[in-house]
Design a protein around this nucleic acid. Structure first.
Length: 674
DNA sequence: AGCACGCCGACT
DNA sequence: GTCGGCGTGCTC
């Protein structure tokens, strides 16, 4: 007998080993095995048993020993790992490594092998549920989930509810229903650190049954939580992206909160999207998938329209008060010299003034940190660029440095142009630092704080900023999109969006969608209960549908417009994308490899013609990163079936054609094309 | 990914 | 004369 073993190496294949008869019983799929591999022994995961020896010239090696008494992964998990490997074109061993605590693949982990025994299920206990009065919409959503759970059939539901509409109650009731059935629940969040209140509610609702699983855990903690779930000591898992692999063996429901959030997509191999994997896992498990958002992704909403997903909406805000009033300020009609920088419109300045008078807090949002976007020589027009990434360096005036926002490169702030030696350097384009300076000019007495990567990375700095905000000490908080994530600032009644056009016109087909989501999420932060909130959006294109839809809090009008554009251009959800990026020290090698792949794809036919339209090869939007040149091919397919064929064609080409010095990264369903 | 094998510069 | 630089090639 033989077994196919996935080893943690970046190769698409498994390796076949002979199994000694003494280990035949124990060598089950999902069990780890110690195998001889390239002059040393390594730990891999048995994917399947087979009677057929591998088709290789050399001698088949024999596995040395098994690391577990019983499998770590059940059949559903193994099938899920295979699906991820195929769909995302990721090496199976890398998928396995992402799915299990990495300690499980280190030799030291062998010591604890005896600890991993058979999973035993906890008895179904009666949960003492606190009686809560649900709104009609909440009750309807809960009834819906409970009915589907009762049928034990796979189903996906979109729960569309604005901030404060009470999605959490529906989540809790759904998980409770799964637990009462003797099944388990998986609760996914984009970022764990930003939602302590939500986590506290879940752990309080299900005392001692919740395991937290996220990237912030130490290796020992991760193993501990993994074991609690595997053995059934905990039957609810709350976690981020990687929690999609939680060892729950009788899964009843998977909840994906803020399903539109980009944090669910892993940006290195395996480049999976945890929301999409959640739906596949639910399908394999016969479980319920519940996707929640105030601003659902177009992909998810499209599945509602195609009747693949159920749609439930929570239109009211039982706890949140009325939705804020959103004002769009046309910056074309503003005088250019309101202040030194021309950053603030009259309406925003008036509203700021009034809010300060009333003793209430304000958030100003600008999606660019630092002082200025670039430093330009007034005499010769040269700008300072990163030598490794070839993009404009951002001026950070507080620390007197020019910094590259793509890599770690920085230089002390120069005083002369390096091209012509002139001393007249102009800082162009505003970042959060400049907003802070301009504000201090206008309101010298006011307590202003900045919340971006520069001010939050120092130890404890982030917490201090949040404390000052909650205590009311900070009157105006300036921030990048960091502030839009998760935080609740009950005292904030005014939100100003500076330069809304920045995110709107990024060279990315999702720019409109992101802007709409961003504005809606930010607007959701303004005002609570009895205090109505106000949002002021400064833009040069107030007629843009993203802004208008966000202004009127109308998701449906946004979707209708955006779908039209996507359909015309064959972008998701009306088509599938694969981005192939070729990276090399040599630009010509990267470019020629990309061209070779393009030629191969246009020649190849897999069971009929290959229906793919190819954009490129072209330099990637970040044409040079950390000293390496990047060229890319964007492949557009009409549907998933065509995409599978294209995937196969890419796989055969890249394995046959081993161009030296070129790294190929395939991104299936890319979230951005950078 | 590792890790070995394989041909060209500065050290005892 | 060697030690070692990291290019390239393979892993059941």
């Amino acid at each position: 007998m033989y077994v196919n073993v996935a080893l943690p190496v970046p190769l698409m294949q498994t390796f076949t080993y002979a199994v000694p008869s003494s280990l035949a019983q124990q060598a089950q799929p999902g069990t780890r095995a110690l195998v001889p591999f390239r002059h040393r022994e390594r730990i891999g995961l048995i994917m399947e048993q087979t009677e057929t020896p591998p088709n290789i010239t050399g001698r088949v090696k024999t596995l040395s020993e098994l690391c577990d008494k019983s499998p770590l992964c059940d059949d559903i998990m193994l099938e899920l790992l295979q699906w991820i490997s195929r769909y995302y074109m990721a090496p199976i061993g890398e998928v396995c490594r992402a799915a299990l605590p990495s300690a499980f693949f280190r030799r030291a982990a062998l010591a604890r092998k005896s600890r991993i025994g058979l999973a035993h299920m906890t008895d179904v206990e009666t949960l003492d549920s606190v009686p809560i009065v649900f709104t009609a919409a909440q009750q309807q959503a809960i009834d819906h989930s409970q009915r589907l759970l009762g049928e034990c059939l796979f189903h996906t539901t979109l729960l569309h509810g604005v901030t404060g509409s009470g999605k959490t109650e529906v989540y809790l009731a759904t998980m409770e229903a799964a637990i009462k059935q003797g099944r388990q629940a998986l609760f996914m969040l984009p970022e764990i650190g930003l939602t302590p209140q939500l986590l506290a509610r879940v752990t309080a609702h299900f005392p001692d049954r919740v395991a937290l699983y996220h990237s912030g855990l130490t290796e020992a903690q991760r193993v501990e939580q993994w074991l609690r779930l595997h053995t059934g000591a905990a039957d609810i898992c709350c976690g981020t992206r990687s929690a999609i692999f939680a060892p729950l063996h009788n899964l009843g429901c998977i909840i994906v909160d803020e399903e539109h959030d980009g944090a669910y997509k892993q940006e290195e191999s395996p480049r999976y999207h945890a929301r999409d994997v959640a739906v596949v896992r639910a399908k394999l498990s016969g479980a319920l998938a519940l996707l929640g958002s105030a601003t659902p992704s177009l992909e998810t909403y499209h599945n509602v329209e195609r009747k693949k997903y159920h749609y439930l909406s929570l239109p009211d805000r039982p706890t949140g008060g009325p939705l804020p009033e959103v004002m769009l300020v046309d910056m074309r009609k503003e005088p250019t010299s309101n202040d030194a920088s021309g950053l603030f419109s009259r309406p925003l300045l008036q509203a700021l003034d009034a809010n300060l008078q009333a003793g209430e807090q304000t958030i100003l949002f600008l999606n660019r940190r630092g002082f200025s976007q670039l430093l330009l020589c007034r005499d010769c027009g040269a700008i300072f660029r990163c030598p490794d990434c070839d993009i404009a360096l951002t001026l950070h005036r507080r620390v007197a440095e020019l910094r590259c926002h793509y890599c770690e490169f920085s230089i002390p702030r120069p005083t002369t142009c390096r091209e012509c030696g002139a001393t007249h350097l102009k800082a162009m384009g505003s970042g959060t630092e400049r907003i802070e300076d301009a504000l201090l000019e206008h309101f010298p007495q006011v307590s202003i704080a900045r919340f971006d990567r520069d001010t939050t990375t120092a130890r404890g700095a982030r917490q201090q900023l949040l404390r000052d905000m909650h205590s009311g000490k900070t009157e105006i908080l300036i921030g990048t999109q960091m502030i839009t994530k998760g935080h609740d600032f009950p005292g904030v009644t005014l939100v100003g969006i500076m330069q809304a056009d920045l995110s709107l016109y990024l060279p990315d087909f999702r720019a409109s969608e992101r802007t709409f989501q961003l504005l809606t999420q930010v607007a959701g932060r303004a005002g609570r209960r009895n205090k109505p909130g106000r949002v002021i959006v400064q833009t040069f294109t107030p007629e843009h549908y993203s802004l208008l839809a966000a202004q009127s809090h109308n998701y449906m009008t946004f979707v209708a417009k955006e779908e039209t554009h996507r359909r015309e251009l064959g972008y998701p959800p009306y088509g599938k994308l694969i981005n192939v990026r070729c990276t090399s020290n040599s630009e010509s090698k990267a470019a020629s490899f990309a061209q070779g792949l393009r030629d191969a794809l246009s020649r190849v036919t897999v069971g009929g013609t290959l229906d793919v339209s190819i954009v490129g090869p072209a330099p990637a939007p970040r044409a040079k990163l950390a000293g390496r040149h990047r060229w890319q091919l964007l492949l557009k397919m009409k549907n998933a079936a065509d995409m599978r064929k294209v995937s196969e064609a890419i796989a055969t080409h890249t394995t046959n054609q081993t161009e030296s010095g070129v790294q190929v990264a395939v991104d299936v369903d890319p979230l951005h094309l950078l």
